[in-house]
Design a binder for these strands. Sequence first.
DNA 1: TACCAGGCGCGCG
DNA 2: CGCGCGCATGGT
Length: 283
Amino acid sequence: MKKIILSSEFFNVKDTLTCGQIFRFREFKDGFLVFSTDKCAYAYNDGEKAIIECLDADENYFTNFFDLDRDYASVYYNAENSEFDIIKKSARVGKGIRILNQNSDEALFSFVISQNNNIPRIKGIIERLCGSLGEKKSFYGEEYFAFPTAKKMASESKAFFMETGLGYRADYIRKLAVSIEQGFSLQSLSNLSTEKLRAELLKIYGVGSKVADCVVLFGFHRSDSFPVDTWIERVYREDFNGVLKDRKKINEYFINEFKGDAGYFQQYLFYYKRLLVQDNLTN
DNA sequence: TACCAGGCGCGCG
DNA sequence: CGCGCGCATGGT
């Protein structure tokens, strides 16, 4: 077993997991089990330290997944020097948030499910999807299920996805699985510019601008991206005194302001706003 | 009971 | 183009 140890200054495990970017994790001992594709890691904070435990073979995978080689001090420095008080404030609260490098296919499926939905229910749907179609695995004696392969999902009917609770998104997921199974590759788009990558994602049935923004940010680490959902709309209205209604224009406003820091600042803001409304985000 | 959640497709003008 | 509507589900 590999144990990766780093400073907790820019890595708060709980905040990173509950800030809405990932839906597959659960509390375990002093921290959380975190799942990605078919892999699992145990992550926790212990005072000054943040610790990740995983299989030796998965060390590189989780080093990348938790974005450990990035300089978060400079992201935070930019936030601290922002002209907007709400950026400073939210960055202080979410100082330990990192943007994870999720598997792009898993991020795509997850954020298609996320539309017009709430986080606890999104987690439940994904958990049931993994439970019924994912490979059964174990880590530290804890049972978990891999994220299902596209092939496995492609073999299921619409009725199955309805029973899983996907509602009107059932066909989005089924058709996406079929298209990947037939050769569509997200990974092959990874060299495109953010703008072109986003345009390709928008061609997918069930993917609109919000989901596309989440996928480029969380599945491709394009930080020049700023997903606008209902929470961010509230932040815009209440904390930026914004008057625009069109989400596309709100998105342009923030991208213009924050450029390459947009994605990080968006997570600070999203986490901060939800924290004020809901006291427990681990559900 | 109506409204809301990390919205999107579709038809209409 | 932009706009309004319907959409599955479960929680307040």
